[in-house]
């Protein structure tokens, strides 16, 4: 077996194992709930019979590992059980499936993340390459200073500044990103503009600095000097000689930042009242709707782990030293 293939398979196996352990941790958090939780959810008026029935429905009368496998089997096909909300009335009709709550919002969140990625990744790469090309110029210094500042700002600060200037003082974009299923595509992009710019500002800085560092690192190697001595132009040296070898660190940092989007998206969704999974999770934390919180946490954690795994695999298979072992 090719050594690269073996390393990749090892990495994939390790990633899946991590995912499994993380799912166990997320599931077992239910154990720490206080004992009177069924009563707290159903309200004071609940009879002992309804409480007992509810505990049975949660599966609290079964061993934990059986419940875990039931939950995991459901999660794999997108069934996360029923939400705790709307139970205190006692009517069975108000009970909602977690999957029905999450599904439309998951699409919204993925839309926002994808839109941000489409803006941020090319922008970061261009800025990074330009800064490496004209390093120590005023352009490089200005971009560096600006990105260092945006790195240290909390997301909601950036978000409210943008909202104040771009939505209230100058009416360029809508201040709230309220979209629904029926919103046409163009309108949706327009309304998502401010959240997407906020997220872009937060993640571009890191990606751009890493791209710049990776390229400048390579520019010190002998084969680049050789290319320069041959009389190749500066742009050509960077695009054709330095960039192919810089892909591994760059892809790594891109995937890392896309994974970071998972976290950033929560705060930004709340600021712009965007109907995404992040806001659903925060609302459920406030109302202590544990099944929904668990489902959201599993989705976020899985995305995060898979993106990091993807970055690992890409950096292994683009590494020339590993591809041609001696």
């Amino acid at each position: 077996m090719h050594p690269v293939l073996r390393t990749v398979l090892q990495r994939l196996g390790l990633g899946l194992l991590t995912l499994l352990v993380v799912s166990i941790i997320i599931f077992s958090s239910l154990i720490f709930l206080p004992g009177d939780f069924a009563t707290a959810i159903l309200g004071q008026a609940a009879t002992p019979e309804t409480v007992a029935a509810f505990r049975k429905e949660l599966g609290l009368d079964e061993p934990a590992f059986i419940r875990y496998f039931d939950w995991l089997r459901g999660a794999l096909v997108g069934d996360f059980g029923t939400s705790f909300s709307g139970r205190s009335g006692g009517s069975a009709g108000a009970v909602r499936q977690v999957a029905d709550l999450i599904e439309p919002r998951l699409y919204n969140t993925l839309f926002l993340a994808a839109m941000t990625a489409i803006i941020a990744v090319p922008l970061a790469l261009t800025l990074g390459i330009m800064a490496a090309l004209y390093r120590n110029s005023w352009f490089d210094r200005a971009v560096n200073a600006a990105t260092l500042t945006t790195i240290s700002f909390p997301e909601f600060f950036v978000a409210y500044i943008l909202m104040l200037f771009l939505a209230v003082k100058f009416d360029v974009f809508p201040s709230l990103a309220n979209v629904s299923d029926t919103t046409p595509f163009g309108e949706r992009v327009y309304r998502c503009m401010l959240p997407s710019i906020t997220l872009t500002l937060v993640i571009v800085a890191h990606m751009m600095r890493m791209t710049r560092a990776a390229i400048i690192n390579l520019l010190a190697s002998p084969y680049i000097e050789m290319a320069q001595l041959k009389g190749v132009s500066r742009t050509n040296v960077i695009v054709h000689h330095a960039l192919p070898n810089a892909w591994a660190p760059i892809v790594n940092v891109i995937a890392f930042n896309l994974a970071y989007l998972v976290v950033g998206v929560v705060v930004v969704e709340v600021v712009f009242v965007y109907p995404g999974v992040g806001q659903l999770m925060v609302d459920s934390v406030t109302s202590r709707d544990i099944p929904v919180v668990q489902a959201c946490a599993l989705i976020f954690a899985a995305t995060y782990i898979l993106l990091n795994l993807f970055a690992d695999v890409i950096s292994i298979i683009t590494n020339p030293r590993l591809l041609h072992p001696r």
């Binding site: 993380v22 958090s29 709930l33 925060v282 946490a297 954690a301």
Partner: peptide, 18 residues
């Protein structure tokens, strides 16, 4: 290693809800 594989804010939100 496992704890670091879960995004911090998300894990904190989940634990706070519990």
């Amino acid at each position: 290693d496992v704890l670091m594989a879960i995004p911090g804010l998300i894990f904190a939100l989940m634990l706070l809800s519990i």
